[in-house]
Simulated scan of single mutants.
Amino acid sequence: MDTVTQLTLGAAVGEAVLGTKIGNKAAFWGAALGVMPDLDVLASPFVSEVQALAIHRGITHSLFFVVAVAPILGWVLHRYVKGSASWKQWLWLVFWVVLTHIFIDVCTSYGTQVFQPFSNYSLSFNSIFIIDPLYTLPLLGGVITALFLNRHSKARSLANWIGIGISTFYLLLGFGIKHHVNNVFQENFVKQNIAPEQFMTTPSPLNILLWNGYAESQDTLYVGLYSVFDDNRQIEFKSIPQNKKLLKPFDDQLPVERLIWFSRGYYAADKIGSELIVHDLRFGRSDLWLTDGDAPFVWNYRLEFNGDSTRVTGFEQFEPSFDMRTEMWNRLFKRMVGQK
């Protein structure tokens, strides 16, 4: 999730665990620890893009990391932060803040290596967009309210827990809607004679009403949109050639292996002049798939080769680009409520 959400979630969890004991310090340390796993991005300037792709949401987002770091940081905080909290109580604050950071990241589409260092399997529930104000704002309102109340008052704890409760309900609602959406997509695959080797659904930006579906079948990715407010369950699919043959000569080389692993197979390759480009389709197009024409993909990699172009030596990521003018926001909102 985005940094604001992780800060807010960490603060709310910190307040829930130790707010009564140490007051506003609990929310402060919860917020600080809430972004700690994402400090893995600080390694990016010192490693190649190939390495950075595996580092982010790697070991610092693993269950192993939670178990290993909680007692150590719990002891440090107990030792150096003034207050009446015990080492065990600080341990639980660290544990729950880092664990909830990992869990909410798993709910997004990026992929999180929760089983490191034992496996690099990238887990993703694809149930919430990486930025969703309807998840974040209740948390923010609850924890801000709590900070202005006496730490021993029931109202303080209640305000914070109401924020956590509303956000958690919204998150669970996303899982329920996703189950329905998956059934609708599977119905359409059968009706339209699409036999997916794999498929995924993920919400479009800032909501859990409008969903993207991606199905991989015979070197083609089928992409469709479905809103829970659509009048019917008929989905119109766009077909994107994957062009796997373009990567076939290099698919046993680490940079290409890494890209296929990261995209979980939802990629398309393009030959543009002398350049070989890989698009990660999970992150959509600049038009959010809302227009009928072509639009640039927002997550792209340009492969780099050695002198005789026999080996891929690395890749360079394109900067994501969303065309989010007022017209596009209006189009997104209308499609969310079922207007095609």
Rank of each mutant, 00 (worst) to 15 (best):
S204E: 11
V256L: 11
S263E: 03
V106N: 08
I131R: 10
A52F: 12
A85V: 07
F169K: 00
L91T: 10
H152S: 15
F185T: 08
V41D: 07
G142K: 00
V98W: 00
S239I: 10
A11D: 01
N188P: 11
A32D: 02
W299Y: 13
A70N: 00
L172E: 00
F46G: 07
A32F: 04
S86P: 07
C107G: 00
I177L: 04
P196S: 12
V228R: 07
R57Q: 05
T136S: 09
W92A: 09
D219M: 12
G314H: 06
I260A: 07
A27V: 02
A54R: 06
A31P: 03
E316H: 15
P138L: 02
F322C: 11
I260N: 02
L246V: 07
V256N: 00
W87S: 08
P241M: 13
L93C: 00
I102A: 03
I144E: 01
F315G: 01
G176C: 04
P37T: 12
G314F: 14
I104A: 06
S321N: 14
Q339C: 04
H279D: 09
S124K: 12
L91E: 04
Y110C: 12
A16K: 09
G83S: 04
S48W: 14
R302G: 08
W289V: 10
G284D: 04
W289K: 13
W211K: 05
Q218N: 12
M1K: 03
N193V: 11
H180Y: 04
F95A: 07
V47A: 13
T313N: 10
V94D: 01
